[in-house]
Simulated assay, not measured.
Amino acid sequence: MRIILLGPPGAGKGTQSTRIVERFGIPQLSTGDMLRAAVAAGTPVGLQAKSIMESGGLVPDEVVVGIVADRVEEADARKGFILDGFPRTVAQAKALDAMLAEKGLALDAVIEFKVDEDALVGRIAKRAAETAARGEPVRKDDTPEVFKTRLEAYRSQTAPLSDYYAETGLLRPVDGMAPIEDVTRELDGLLRGLQPVSA
């Protein structure tokens, strides 16, 4: 089962991907984690990424896709994987499709968390207030100002993926504003309905 979780920051993707990992036994592939691991392992792509990152540049799409390509070859990803935070742009989505096709693989579904953005800002503000009330440090990206900037970046760069994947027939919307347990149940039914991927 190879899936992408799509949705703005704060939509609940992290919470649900943790549950999918537990129930279906497939890894969540975070591009940030993969980049750090590739750099630490000194792989050819990792070394390329390291020199770009050290010079303060953004790692180009082909390097990120190369890192994803290496990662999906690992034993734990043979049964499938969850991509969260990648692809971020239509160009990355096309590069991902091409890379998977080269390996004889394909995505099974792109799950989009549909949310009300104003309610999301409220949700983040509440989370920040609760964290502060417990005397814990508030994440820098949990302030309403920073969060709104992240939302704008999502709208301009990543939201077009919704149309891209709708055209492929892979897009499956879920109600990201529903209670967490309801979202989990909806996802569970949706994922169990997908054809199992042969290992």
Rank of each mutant, 00 (worst) to 15 (best):
R134D: 14
L29E: 08
A199C: 08
G56M: 13
Q92T: 05
L190S: 01
E145Q: 15
T184L: 13
L190C: 00
G57A: 13
I67L: 03
E102H: 06
E74D: 01
V197C: 00
G66A: 01
E73W: 09
A153E: 14
Y154L: 10
G176T: 06
M34Y: 03
I26H: 04
K148H: 02
R185T: 12
E136I: 11
F24S: 02
R36N: 11
G122Y: 01
E145A: 14
L35Y: 01
Y164K: 05
R134W: 11
L83S: 05
L187I: 06
L29Y: 11
V64W: 10
D142Y: 07
D84I: 08
E102M: 06
L161Y: 04
Q16P: 15
R23V: 07
A128K: 03
E62G: 03
D33F: 12
R172P: 11
L6M: 15
V65K: 03
A133E: 15
A75M: 04
D142E: 11
K94P: 07
G193C: 05
G135H: 13
A98C: 07
R36Q: 13
F81L: 07
A75F: 04
V197L: 04
A109G: 09
E102W: 04
I52P: 02
K13D: 10
G66R: 02
E54M: 07
D175N: 15
T184M: 10
P27Y: 00
T158Q: 11
Q48W: 06
K114R: 15
K126L: 12
E102L: 03
A41R: 03
A98E: 15
F86E: 04
V72N: 03
D182K: 06
R78Q: 06
L58V: 14
E145D: 15
A93P: 08
E117C: 00
G104S: 01
D108T: 13
T131K: 14
I111N: 07
K50Y: 09
L161E: 10
A101P: 12
S51C: 01
I180N: 10
M99K: 07
R2L: 03
A40F: 14
P196M: 06
P44E: 01
G169S: 07
I124T: 02
D70P: 11
K94F: 01
P87Y: 05
G56P: 13
P160R: 01
A132Y: 14
E130T: 13
Y164N: 10
V64G: 02
K94V: 14
L100N: 07
I180Y: 09
A77L: 00
A95G: 09
V183G: 13
T43S: 08
A93F: 07
P87G: 01
M99Y: 07
Y165A: 10
G56V: 10
K103Q: 12
R134F: 13
I111E: 06
